[in-house]
Structure formats: structure tokens, C-alpha cells
């Protein structure tokens, strides 16, 4: 065998197994779900061709739109909750002292815990009878504020957003800290000479220079909030009466509990489309704002 031939063989045998497993189990399912969406299948027997029926009934289903709305609430809570908290912490914790490192580690900690554990802990915190939250409210004399946080439809989506924010501040904090540490020191000195200190410096120097980083984190919030299935599923199953349904829990509940695999595939495909649209939309929005 020639040298070039041997190299080619080597390269193919390195690339093929990994790409095969990746393609088969990560990429092919997306294509298949679009295809399965055209069939009715209950898990037994042959799938029956149904045309656009599944897709049409998903978009006509009010629950799908409510789930989409709840997903957008989570996106909003992530952007308005995680980012300001992470940014404020980063401005205070950007020196590499022992204290800063310890606080940063503590804030990051929930990231390594199983979402199931996070969800179960917060279920206890919100528990109407024994929960820490109602207990603390009674303690400070706000008895009238106590409520069944996860079952009252007027607050439960917001109650669910809190643990999502709590668990996900960590990575944003690390990103902002490294952005602040990488700001050129000349700018800092120039700002000092011009007399820009404190809030003035923050809003007219530091934040504008971090704009690119903030853009990236907004897009991360959008992509990340579409992954919130585990937490909501464990805490509420999307209930009561579907009030906390997200796209992913709606997909789960209308597929595996009722054996409608075609319908579930159609929802899955729409989830892919929605997330692609959201990411694209946010990227366009961000680019326009920064160029104007």
C-alpha cells in the first residue's frame, strides 16, 4: 500500500466509528421524527400514513401554545434573572482572591447536582405545609403571602423559574468574570484619568465593552431554557391541569402516557423548529442592535 493510501485508511478508521454513533443516535432521530410525524402509530402493529394530520392538530391544540408561552416565560426569567445576578456577582468577584474563588465555587455548585435532586429539594421548599418558604413567610409575619406555590396557576410558572435561575447562575458568572478580567487595563486607567468612577464607569465603559459577551449569554439563555424538561417534569409533571406544561413535557405527556408516537414526533419536530427560530431570531435581534 502507498503511503498516501495508508494515511487515508488510518484517517477513515479513526473518523468512522465516532461519526457513525454520533450520526445514528444524535442526528438521524431528528430526521426520523419529521418523517414519523406523518404517521399514526400506537406502538403495536403497522404505522398508518396520516398526511399532515398530526402537524395540523398540534398547531390547533391550545395546550401546545400554552406550553410555548410557558417556555417563553422561562426564557424571560433566565434572561432577566440569571444574567443580572451573574453580572452583579461578577463585578464584585472578579479578583482572584480566596474569598472570591470560594463564593464563585459555591454559586457554581448546583450545576454538578442532578436536576432531579435540585427539583426534589425545591419541591420541599415550596411544600404548602412543611416548606421552608411558607415557614419563613409566617416567621416574619407575612402569613397572608403563604400559598401553594406549585399548584396556584397564577404563580406556579414563576415559582418554577426560581430554581432554574438558582441552578444556572454559575456558568454565566464564570463567563462574565473572565470577560471582566480580559478587559484591557489601559481602558481602566483612561477612565480613571477622565474621572469616570463607580456607576459612571460601569455604564459608560465596562458594560459597553462587555456587550459581545452579554450577547452570547442571551443566546445561551434562550438555548438553555429549552432544556428545562427534567426540573419541571419532576416538580409538577406539567400540571396541575397543564398549567406548567413546557413544550418538552407536553411532548412527553402526549406521547408516552397515551401511546401516540406519531403525534409526539410531530411535536418533537416543531420543538426543533421553534428552537432554531428562537436562536436565529435572537441572533438577528442582537446583530441589529449592536450595529445601530
Amino acid at each position: 500500500m502507498t503511503n498516501a493510501g495508508r494515511l487515508k485508511l488510518f484517517m477513515i478508521s479513526c473518523l468512522a466509528p465516532g461519526l457513525l454513533v454520533y450520526g445514528l443516535f444524535a442526528i438521524v432521530p431528528i430526521v426520523w421524527s419529521a418523517y414519523y410525524g406523518f404517521f399514526d402509530w400506537s406502538g403495536i402493529g403497522e404505522p398508518k400514513y396520516a398526511g399532515w394530520d398530526n402537524y395540523a392538530s398540534v398547531v390547533r391544540e391550545p395546550l401546545f401554545w400554552r406550553a410555548l408561552k410557558n417556555n417563553i416565560i422561562v426564557v424571560g426569567a433566565s434572561i432577566l434573572g440569571q444574567l443580572p445576578i451573574a453580572l452583579a456577582l461578577a463585578l464584585l468577584l472578579n479578583r482572584n482572591t480566596w474569598f472570591s474563588r470560594t463564593v464563585r465555587s459555591a454559586v457554581f455548585m448546583p450545576m454538578v447536582m442532578s436536576t432531579v435532586v435540585v427539583a426534589l429539594i425545591w419541591k420541599y421548599i415550596y411544600h404548602p405545609q412543611i416548606g421552608v418558604l411558607n415557614y419563613a413567610l409566617k416567621l416574619v409575619g407575612l402569613e397572608s403571602w403563604t400559598m401553594p406555590w406549585l399548584s396556584d396557576p397564577s404563580v406556579n410558572m414563576y415559582a418554577l423559574s426560581v430554581p432554574i435561575i438558582w441552578a444556572n447562575v454559575g456558568p454565566y458568572l464564570i463567563i462574565f468574570v473572565s470577560a471582566i478580567q480580559n478587559l484591557p487595563s489601559e481602558v481602566d486607567e483612561a477612565a480613571k484619568l477622565d474621572g469616570a468612577v463607580g456607576g459612571r464607569k460601569l455604564f459608560s465603559v465596562t458594560l459597553p465593552m462587555m456587550w459581545d459577551t452579554i450577547k452570547v449569554t442571551v443566546i445561551m439563555c434562550i438555548a438553555g431554557s429549552l432544556k428545562a424538561f427534567d426540573l419541571v417534569f419532576v416538580m409538577t409533571h406539567g400540571g396541575p391541569a397543564h398549567t406548567t406544561e413546557l413544550l418538552a413535557t407536553y411532548m412527553y405527556n402526549s406521547t408516552f402516557a397515551v401511546y401516540r408516537y406519531g403525534y409526539g414526533s410531530a411535536i418533537s419536530t416543531l420543538i426543533v423548529l421553534v428552537s432554531a427560530a428562537l436562536i436565529l431570531f435572537s441572533q438577528l435581534l442582537m446583530n441589529r442592535r449592536s450595529s445601530s
Binding site: L19, Y22, G23, F25, A26, I27, V28, P29, I30, W32, S33, Y36, W41, A223, L226, K227, F229, A248, M251, Y252, T255, F256, Y261, G264, S265, I267, S268, T269, I271, V272, S275, A276, I279
Partner: peptide
């Protein structure tokens, strides 16, 4: 092709993977 995998919402593969 590899980057694509990081953008896929993982839960949208549950149903098709289950069928496969």
C-alpha cells in the same frame, strides 16, 4: 456536522429514539 449536535434540543430526540 459535529456542531449541529450541540444545537439540537435533546428532548426532541426522545420520541424518535424510542421508536428506533
Amino acid at each position: 456536522f459535529l456542531l449541529l449536535g450541540m444545537l439540537i434540543p435533546i428532548h426532541s430526540t426522545l420520541v424518535p429514539l424510542f421508536i428506533m
